[in-house]
Design a protein around this nucleic acid. Structure first.
Ligand code: MN
Ligand code: MN
Ligand code: ZN
Ligand code: ZN
Lengths: 130, 130
DNA sequence: TTATCAATTGCAACATTGTTGCGTTTAATT
DNA sequence: AATTAAACGCAACAATGTTGCAATTGATAA
């Protein structure tokens, strides 16, 4: 395994994640960093953070991709088997760490990863739409 | 609701879905149609077919998007609550119509759609990798 | 059958997202 | 301080999806 370094850009990206309660897209991170680094660098940092199991990737039905910190006590290798919620109104995506789907797979499949994303209205938007 | 028409292109796209046992990407459909119509047209046909609940969209963890026919007896409005499997080796995506996740949501969320995609090795690839 | 007209299409142009190659910079170690 | 591989910036590219608009066409009614 390659040695990984702590750079200014990586630290800044991590701070952005720290401050955010919801998942973030590459573009959102780039805007918050305010040209601290190139957008390609952010893609590469995200790749590294995923490999280090510090963040995980969330792929939404509408095609958008976001990233969120793993805020559970995490072992080195773990499956992100919790659900994510994507609000159709405010477009925020949040980890639902406590929502874990149970399901029965047919034989002869080897499951390595799961992506369970629900979409609809989040509590905020549900209340304001009375 | 707007009236929808049966055009040559739409019929051709439906035939492609009919023949395929796995989900198809926009690009795969375009190649199979062999320049019968423009690629923009295919995007628009896919949009219409989704609105008509004839096909459904599958968004994978790696960012790829595919489409598959609804082959259950379908009511006008229905949730596609079955799982999809994405093979990391052959990249085929199949509907697992019988795999439906059960889960418990916190209150105050309104769920309209779910996207449940599992990835790993499909039976074919699992066997050949002994 | 023919006229009508909104739905559909083709085309060009554009936007967004993600990737790659390469020369330069820099974090970590000696 | 010297070393060196990891990380970076930049430019160029690829893939995917969207939009506006004029031309075409499917479905309907005359
Ligand atoms: Mn996690
Ligand atoms: Mn269906
Ligand atoms: Zn919301
Ligand atoms: Zn396979």
């Amino acid at each position: 395994m390659k040695a990984t370094r702590n750079t200014a850009a990586k630290t800044a990206v991590l701070e952005v994640f720290e401050k955010s309660k919801t998942a973030l897209s590459h573009t959102e991170i780039h805007k918050q960093l305010n040209d601290l680094c190139d957008r390609v660098t952010i893609y590469r940092i995200l790749d590294r953070l995923i490999n280090e199991d510090v963040i995980h990737k969330i792929s939404n039905l509408d095609g958008t991709v976001k990233y969120a910190k793993c805020n559970h006590a995490h072992q080195r290798v773990h499956i992100h088997n919790h659900a994510h919620f994507s609000c159709e109104n405010c477009h925020e995506i949040t980890c639902l760490e406590n929502v874990k789907p149970s399901y029965i797979m047919p034989h002869n499949y080897k499951v390595n990863e799961i992506n369970f994303t629900l979409s609809g209205l989040c509590p905020n938007c549900l209340n304001s739409n009375i």
